[in-house]
C-alpha cells in the first residue's frame, strides 16, 4: 500500500511529467488557453494513459519477452497506443455520445503525445508490476492535468497583462511555465516512509 501511495505521489507532484520529466509539453502549451478545455484534455489523457499502460505492459511481458523481441518495443507500443486510441474513439462515439462530444476532439492527439508512450517505457524500464504500471500511468496523467489547469489559469492572467512586445505570445508563456516549474521543484525531496 505504501509503495502504491509513493508511486501516486511521485507521479502527481515530485516527478510531475510536465515540470520535471518534460513529457507532454505539446498539449501543455497547445490547449492551456482555457481552463475548461484543459480539463477536457486532461480527462481524455487520464483515461487513455490508464488503459494504454495496462495494454503495453501486458504486450511487453506476454508477447515481446516471450518471443525475445524486446528491441521491437518502440514499434509495438506505438501501434498498440494508436489502435487503442482509435478503438476508444469508435467505442465512445457509439455508446457514450455525450462523453465523446466533450472529449472526442482531444483523442486523436493522444497518439502523438509523448507522455503516453513515455509512461509505457518508464513502467517497463523500472520493472513495475501490472497494478503499479496502471497506477503510475493514470496518476502521471492526473499530474499533467493538474499542471495544465494551473497553467491555463496563469495564461488567462497573462492575456490581460502587457509584457514587452517581443515577449508577447509563446515566449512569455514559456517564461511563466519556467516559474511554475520552479514552484514544482519545491516538491522534490518529499519522502514518506
Amino acid at each position: 500500500m505504501g509503495e502504491i501511495f509513493m508511486i501516486m505521489l511521485a507521479a502527481v507532484l515530485t516527478e510531475n511529467f510536465i515540470f520535471t520529466k518534460f513529457l507532454g509539453i505539446c498539449p501543455f502549451l497547445g490547449v492551456s488557453d482555457k481552463p475548461d478545455k484543459a480539463l477536457g484534455m486532461g480527462m481524455a489523457l487520464t483515461f487513455v494513459m490508464g488503459v494504454s499502460s495496462a495494454a503495453t505492459w501486458l504486450a511487453y511481458h506476454f508477447i515481446l519477452i516471450e518471443f525475445n523481441l524486446e528491441h521491437l518495443r518502440t514499434i509495438a507500443f506505438i501501434l498498440i497506443i494508436a489502435s487503442l486510441v482509435q478503438s476508444i474513439e469508435i467505442f465512445m462515439k457509439k455508446y457514450f455520445r455525450t462523453l465523446y462530444e466533450s472529449l472526442g476532439i482531444f483523442l486523436p492527439l493522444m497518439t502523438t503525445n509523448c507522455a503516453v508512450l513515455g509512461a509505457a517505457f518508464i513502467a517497463v524500464d523500472n520493472e513495475f508490476t501490472l497494478i503499479n504500471a496502471v497506477i503510475y500511468g493514470t496518476f502521471s496523467a492526473v499530474g499533467i492535468t493538474l499542471a495544465i489547469i494551473i497553467f491555463a489559469g496563469v495564461r488567462e492572467r497573462i492575456d490581460f497583462s502587457d509584457p514587452p512586445a517581443i515577449f508577447r505570445g509563446t515566449p512569455i508563456a514559456l517564461v511563466a511555465a519556467g516559474l511554475l516549474a520552479m514552484a514544482f521543484s519545491g516538491f522534490s525531496g518529499i519522502e514518506i516512509n
Partner: peptide, 10 residues
C-alpha cells in the same frame, strides 16, 4: 534545472 530550460527557451 527544468525551470531554467523553460525560461531560456522563452
Amino acid at each position: 534545472s527544468p525551470a531554467g530550460a523553460f525560461i531560456t527557451l522563452g
